[in-house]
Design a binder for these strands. Structure first.
Lengths: 165, 165
DNA sequence: ATATAGTTATATCGGATCGATATAACATGG
DNA sequence: CCATGTTATATCGATCCGATATAACTATAT
């Protein structure tokens, strides 16, 4: 998760740790902690996917290596599930680096996961125990947000197909 | 997180591990893994908050102890932040066990967190770098879902106030 | 009858992530 | 001049995730 995020951001130019975290924050990934970011950077550095070049003062600027660029493209395109929302959102953030037909495939895979989930939510709602009003509210909210995301995905797919012409 | 969830479910009657996971799944917490569930059960057992009584076959049924009941009520009512969505949703699932005025306080704290977040999202959008259309889509979606959740919370608060009379 | 596949159930392992905390340089405003 | 805030890197323990193993029981097909 962090791997793809860090590689993707460094793909668009060198950054130091704190800047990576800020960019992620801006992209809607609030609460990416330093406790996961710095170990991730260390990890990627160990694999030779990123390299530090010391900048001004104490800051370490990290850049993508050639190996890292290949790893990024592989991760971005790798066997989508895509049941994990965070992973999907990060993938989407770097969609520009993915081939158009793969973009549509990723979007539709995510859509399929959500329609399955929606069907299950409705099944559960039908044959559910009495249930107090708060759990009902929770389940109804799940249905609503899932429907909303499906509609959003449909919009993205439509835009993708239109843009492709 | 798991702690409150497990205690809350056992508060409504004894269950074994697999059933806890199924109930959580039904409540919209898909992908609560056994790798976090079973260690959590072990943890709570170690603290004397839950106790196993062996059921049919290999199944272990867990029930809430008196100490566990107190711990549950304390956790449920404890200093809300509530920036963590999962924690908030679990809290909401057990709202029935919380005093009405505390319920409203929790809802409004969550609302406050979301309005702050919304303001920040809009600030970022205004003074953002060029940004390709996918990151724009991502950021716009964040705004939309946050607005939607705020509206939902408003509904819950209104219902709470109406029900209180 | 008996393979085959699926569900229920408990468990563990390594690695990833989180939240809190520590440190320190530098900037800014009162 | 000094307190507060921001930038920046780092680490620790606890928790959580994903994958995997095991095994009994159940339904279904051949």
């Amino acid at each position: 998760m962090m791997d793809l995020a860090v590689l993707g951001l460094l793909h668009e130019g060198p950054l130091h740790g704190y800047q990576v975290r800020r960019r992620l924050h801006e992209l809607g990934f609030r609460r990416v902690s330093f406790g996961s970011l710095y170990p991730a950077i260390r990890r990627l550095e160990g694999r030779g996917w990123i390299a530090a070049r010391r900048g001004n003062g104490r800051r370490k600027e990290y850049g993508l290596t050639e190996e890292g660029r290949r790893a990024f493209e592989e991760l971005l395109d790798a066997g989508v599930d895509d049941g994990d929302e965070r992973r999907f959102r990060i993938r989407l953030a770097f969609f520009a680096h993915l081939e158009p037909h793969r973009r549509i495939a990723v979007l539709e895979e995510r859509r399929a996961v959500l329609t399955d989930r929606l069907a299950e939510l409705r099944r559960n709602r039908r044959r559910s125990t009495p249930a107090d009003r708060y759990t009902v509210a929770l389940m109804e909210r799940s249905v609503a947000t899932t429907e909303s995301e499906i509609a959003w995905l449909d919009g993205l797919v439509a835009a993708e197909r239109a843009g492709r012409t």
